[in-house]
Design a protein around this nucleic acid. Structure first.
Lengths: 343, 343
DNA sequence: ACAACAATTTAAAGCGCTTTGGAGATTTGC
DNA sequence: GCAAATCTCCAAAGCGCTTTAAATTGTTGT
C-alpha cells in the first residue's frame, strides 16, 4: 500500500492525504480523521526511502564502530550503551544505523556516511586524546556527538562524558583515607581519553598528599578479565606489593578478584579494590550489597542522554554544541577496608 | 556532489555516468575509466536514499532487539554477534539497522520494517520455543533468518544454530565419565529455545545411564553473574549437594566460581564446572590454559555466518531457506576433575 | 559510397513521497 | 449581493538515482 493507492482509495489527492497524515493545518479535521482511519486500517506506512529523499532527512543516526584487532569498542559496555541510545531513538522516530569497519577504514566510513546521506547525524565512540575523527567530522559538517571527550581538540563540539577525573580522584582519596599508600591503577588503554583522565584523577589525589605515583603500579591495557587477573598476579610478586587496586572496569575487576582469592587472600580485608562500574545489565555489582566498592555511572543512561543530545542538535541546526558531564556515584561495597598493617 | 553535477562536469549524460559507475557493459572502457577517476577525485557517492528508491533495494538489514525488562537480548553476546554480522555486512555493502523496541511493540516493529521498506531483510534474535515472530515474518514475506531455532514452528525458514543438544549431552557425558552423579544444570530462561535444547541434551545423557534427573538440580534464569552465584549458594545447602555444575554462560560461570571459592572449596577438585563459552572477545576463557572446561562456539563467527546466509537469501529470492548447524567444541580446562568420594 | 549492423550515448519516465503555487468552494463584511 | 478573505483541496514539480526506449556515432562489407 503506497500513498497513491491510499489516496485513490480515499478519493483524495496525494497532497491532501500526505498533509492529513503529517498534521498540516490545511486539511479539515473531518477528512483528517477519515484519512487516518483508513490508513490505519490498511496499515499504511510511508516508504522511508521516498520520504527521506523528498524531505532530505534520513531519520536515522549512524554509529561507526571500529573493528580493531583489539576489539576496543566491541566491549561489554557497547550493548548497554546501544540499548540506551536505541530507546531514545525509537521514541523520537529515528533508526539506528551501525557501521562496523576495520580500524584503518574509519575516516572513509565517515566520509561515506556524509556523502551517501543515509544518516542525519553520527555518534562517535571511544575518543582518543587527540582524535582525528573529531576534526574530520567538524570539517564534514554532519551533526555529531561524542561519547566521551578528546583532550587535545580545538573548536567546540557536542559531547557527553562521565567526570572520570573526579571519580577516580574521589576513589583514590577513599583508599588513601583507609590508609592505603600503594595503590595500583589498573587502567584502560592510555590512548583512550577516558583512561588519561582517570589517571590524572588518581595522580591528583596522590599528589595532594605528597605521595609520588609509583610507575610500577600503573597499568594500562584492554580491560578483559584476564588482564585484571594477570596484573594482580604480577604486582603481588613485587617487593612491596600494592594493598589496593583501582580498576577501570568491572570485567577486569572480576579478574582482580579471582587472582586475589586464588592467592588465598580476602578482598576487603587483605587487599582493597575499587572498580569503575558501568552498571551493566548482566553484570550487576552484586545483588543487595554491592560486591565491589565502585564509582558507578550507568552507561545505558549515558547512551540514552547522548542520543537525545544529538537529536536536539540535528533538529536545531545552528544551535551551539551541547555538552553534558555526568558525575559518577561512589558506592561502598565489601571490597574495601583499612590498609593492613604490614610489619 | 550529486550525479547531475558529476555528469555535467564530465560532459556526459547521467545515464552514462550511472552505467559507468555500476559496471554496465554498454559504456566504453575509456569513458568508464574517465568517469571513475573523476568520481573518485570528487569523492562522489550515490545518495543512498535515491538509489534505494530507484532500485527497490535498501542495502540494509534490520535487527529488531527486544528491550524487555529482563534485557534478555541486551546481553554480553550481543556485541560479539553484531561484530561478526557487521563484518559480513560491510564487505557485502550492506548497512545494519538496529531497532530497539519494547517487548510488547515487537510485532508492530516487524510490520513497520516491512511497510517502511527500509531494510531488505531481518535477523531474528533469541527465538523462543514457539515464536510468534517467525510465523509473522513468514506471512509478511520479508526475507529473514533466525539466530537459533524454534522447536514448534511449522514451515521452513532460514536459521543458524549451535547444536545445543549435542553440546550439552557431550558435556554431561564428560561429567558422568568423571564419576559425577549429581549434576546441577544452571540454564538460561526456559522459554528460550536454546535453553530447552540444552536441557534435553543434559537429560538425554542422564537417561542413557539410567539416572533420573533431580528437579532440585534444574535451574533456569537470566544468565547473570549473580544468578550463577546464588544458584551455587542455594544448592550447596541441599542435603545432597551437587558435585558438578553445567552452566549455560560464562558470565554465570564466573558467579559459580565465586560462590565455590567463597565457600572455601576448589573448583576442579571439590566441585567440577563446565560452562558454555561463546568465546567473547573480552571474556576469554583464560589465556593459555582455559579456566573452565567448556563447550565453545564463537558467537562472533555465528554472527558473521548468519549475515552471509541472510544476504544470500536476499540476493536469491525464491531459493529454498538455508540452515546451518554449528557444532560446539569441548575444551578441557582446569574446572573439572573426578567426583570426590563422599563418605 | 552506402546500407546494415554494432557500439555508444542520451532523453525521459519512474521509484513514492513532500511541497509549491494555485484553483474552487465557502464564509465574511458591508 | 458582491468583493475579499478564508477554507479545502489539487496538479505538478522535484528529491537523486536507475533503466527503458530511442537516437547518434562508428564500423564493416560490398
Amino acid at each position: 500500500m503506497n500513498l497513491k493507492q491510499l489516496s485513490t482509495l480515499l478519493g483524495l489527492s496525494q497532497t491532501t492525504v500526505s498533509r492529513a497524515l503529517n498534521g498540516y493545518p490545511e486539511v479539515s479535521e473531518a477528512t483528517r480523521q477519515r484519512v487516518m482511519q483508513v490508513a490505519d486500517q490498511h496499515n499504511y506506512r510511508p516508504n522511508t526511502r521516498a520520504k527521506a529523499l523528498a524531505t532530505g532527512r534520513a531519520m536515522a543516526i549512524g554509529h561507526v564502530i571500529p573493528l580493531s584487532t583489539q576489539h576496543e569498542m566491541m566491549n561489554p559496555i557497547f550493548g548497554d550503551f546501544i540499548a540506551g541510545a536505541g530507546e531514545s531513538y525509537s521514541t523520537a522516530g529515528y533508526d539506528m544505523v551501525l557501521s562496523l569497519v576495520a580500524d584503518e577504514d574509519q575516516s572513509r566510513a565517515y566520509h561515506d556516511m556524509a556523502a551517501k546521506r543515509n544518516v542525519d547525524g553520527i555518534v562517535l565512540h571511544a575518543p582518543k586524546m587527540q582524535d582525528a575523527r573529531i576534526t574530520l567530522l567538524q570539517q564534514i559538517g554532519l551533526p555529531f556527538a561524542v561519547h566521551g571527550r578528546a583532550t587535545d581538540i580545538a573548536g567546540p563540539y557536542s559531547w557527553l562524558d562521565v567526570n572520570n577525573t573526579s571519580a577516580f580522584q574521589r576513589a583514590t582519596d577513599f583508599l588513601l583515607d583507609l590508609g592505603h599508600r600503594r595503590i595500583c591503577l589498573v587502567n584502560g588503554q592510555e590512548s583512550m581519553d577516558f583512561a588519561f583522565r582517570r589517571r590524572r584523577g588518581y595522580e591528583a589525589a596522590l599528589q595532594a598528599r605528597d605521595i609520588a605515583p609509583d610507575p610500577a603500579l600503573l597499568f594500562a591495557g584492554e580491560m578483559t578479565e584476564v588482564y585484571g587477573y594477570d596484573t594482580v598476579r604480577r604486582t603481588q610478586l613485587l617487593e612491596q606489593p600494592p594493598t589496593a587496586y583501582l580498576v577501570s572496569s568491572i570485567i577486569a575487576a572480576f579478574g582482580v578478584r579471582r587472582a586475589i582469592e586464588e592467592a588465598g587472600l580476602t578482598m576487603g580485608r587483605d587487599i582493597s579494590v575499587i572498580t569503575h562500574d558501568d552498571d551493566l545489565s548482566y553484570l550487576r555489582n552484586g545483588a543487595d550489597v554491592p560486591v565491589f566498592t565502585a564509582t558507578r555511572s550507568s552507561v545505558r543512561h549515558a547512551g540514552s542522554r547522548l542520543a537525545k543530545l544529538l537529536i536536539s542538535q540535528i533538529e536545531n541546526p545552528g544551535a551551539p554544541p551541547l555538552t553534558e558531564l555526568l558525575e559518577a556515584e561512589l558506592t561502598v561495597g565489601r571490597s574495601t577496608g583499612p590498609a593492613p598493617n604490614r610489619i
